[in-house]
């Protein structure tokens, strides 16, 4: 059925299965465009699992905002097929972000120091790359983010 994400006191359900299915259809072709294989944006040291539960919601909220504001928006799909698949991912992650905003409204998505620190590290990994390369790499690393959600 649906996957329940436990993010501290913020608990939401999401169709993670559908999102994974959507990404698996474009994973290899997107990752093949990422030629900088010495750098990784989403690193283990910033994973949701390695973050204390209370800060997980805020960290995820920030990561999703990065994807929605700067990755999907600036990604240049090679064809309509990929474009539709990326649209599916963007809209699916948007529904998760909307649920997290509800948690925020109900004061169950606090932003502590750890979340802020880890997100700034992720952002610096993202920004140290040329813009278009960063967008392609981040999109190719969605399987890492989805694995973090799977384990949440």
């Amino acid at each position: 059925g649906l996957k329940t994400l436990h993010l501290g006191s913020c608990v939401i359900t999401t169709n993670l299965h559908g999102i994974r299915s959507g990404f698996s259809e474009i994973r290899d072709s997107v990752q093949a465009k990422d030629e900088i294989i010495d750098i990784r944006i989403l690193r283990k040291t910033q994973s949701l699992q390695g973050t204390k539960p209370a800060d997980r919601c805020c960290l995820l909220h920030h990561i999703l905002r990065l994807y929605l504001d700067r990755v999907f928006k600036n990604y240049q799909p090679p064809d309509h097929h990929i474009f539709r698949k990326v649209s599916r991912l963007a809209n699916s992650l948007l529904t998760i972000k909307k649920d997290l905003r509800l948690c925020h409204a109900h004061m169950s998505c606090p932003c502590g120091e750890e979340a802020a620190e880890k997100y700034s590290q992720i952002l610096s990994h993202f920004e140290e790359l040329p813009p278009q390369a960063a967008v392609v790499k981040a999109l190719g690393e969605l399987d890492i983010l989805l694995q973090w959600l799977e384990e949440a």
Partner: peptide, 8 residues
């Protein structure tokens, strides 16, 4: 190779 993760 392509990027490889045995779990996937």
């Amino acid at each position: 190779t392509d990027r490889f993760n045995s779990l996937q």
